[in-house]
Simulated scan of single mutants.
Amino acid sequence: MRAQKITIQAKFGCQLITNIVSKVLFMNKNLNEKTGLCVLYSRPLPNLREENTTSIRRAISLTFNENADSTVLTDMKTAVEALSPDCYEAASVYMGPSLLIPFYKGSFVLGTWQGIYLCNWGQQSGDVELIIIPHAATERDLFTVVFKPPHSGVYNISNLIINEIKNTFSKRNLEKENENTGLLFVKTEHTSASLTVNGPTGTEGFSPHNLNIALDELVPEKWSGSLFKHTSEGPDDMPGHVKSSLIGATALVPLCWFDSDLSADNNLKKTNIYFCEHSNIFLLRNDKYY
């Protein structure tokens, strides 16, 4: 479908743009009965420039995070400044300039408290162009998997997803050769959790424990006592929001990674999908996969 472009003023820091993007996208009434993915891309326009130079300050990024408490917006800016003092280019790399956003029958599929952030790390306001590209499909399966982590940590959820894929193909009576074509889009609807794709666990493989330790060192809980204002939900909550944006709330994987009978025991010895729970406050997650 045709791309749409809009220009908005990006203030220094983070701002919610969910309603702006939604309004523009769903002006196309043809999307009201469709399911698909929207590609959202951001780029700074020439008035976002450093003084006395001709280079554009490329310090714009997009992410999902909490839409309810404005202190999360300001704390996200504070965290990124602490991670990369005096280096706004690094800040834009952490989250990236684009997002994939699922939609279903005229609405984005987001969690109750989840919104779309536009982040300007360039230390000055200016115009940003948003490019909105919808990809709709006549057939697209949407399903929900409920996962209850016992505590914060990194968990392999590949088997949960594989079982749901099996059920989906069985219900639709799809031919075997169609099972490993196409893409699987995975998204968590919670703002203190994230998703990552990585290798198998083991002595020489991926270590969920080590990833958890590294993230705790990168965004420590002690920041809740010194840097953050969003602290009412516990010392690990705002660090959890930051970790969620650093890793990302989505994963996109080819179905051909799963073998022909979608068995976790074979193909996924090399690649797995991991759910990262960064907070001990809310331990019931309802995650949607597309």
Rank of each mutant, 00 (worst) to 15 (best):
A3S: 13
K5G: 00
T7S: 11
G13P: 05
T18K: 07
I20D: 10
F26N: 03
V39P: 01
L48W: 00
N52W: 06
T53P: 03
T54G: 10
R57K: 15
A59Y: 08
L62Q: 04
T63S: 15
E66K: 09
N67G: 06
A68N: 15
D69V: 10
D75L: 07
M76L: 14
G106D: 07
G111C: 06
W113E: 12
C119R: 11
Q124Y: 02
G126E: 03
V128A: 04
V128R: 03
L130W: 01
P134N: 04
H135I: 12
A136C: 07
A136T: 04
A136L: 02
V146A: 12
Y155P: 01
I162S: 14
I165Q: 12
K166Y: 04
E175T: 04
E179W: 10
E179S: 02
F185K: 00
H190P: 00
T196H: 10
G205Y: 11
D216L: 07
D216S: 14
D216W: 03
P220C: 06
E221Y: 06
S232H: 13
S245K: 08
L246S: 06
G248M: 05
A251W: 05
V253E: 04
T271F: 10
N272Y: 00
E277I: 05
H278N: 11
L283P: 01
K288E: 08
Y289Q: 04
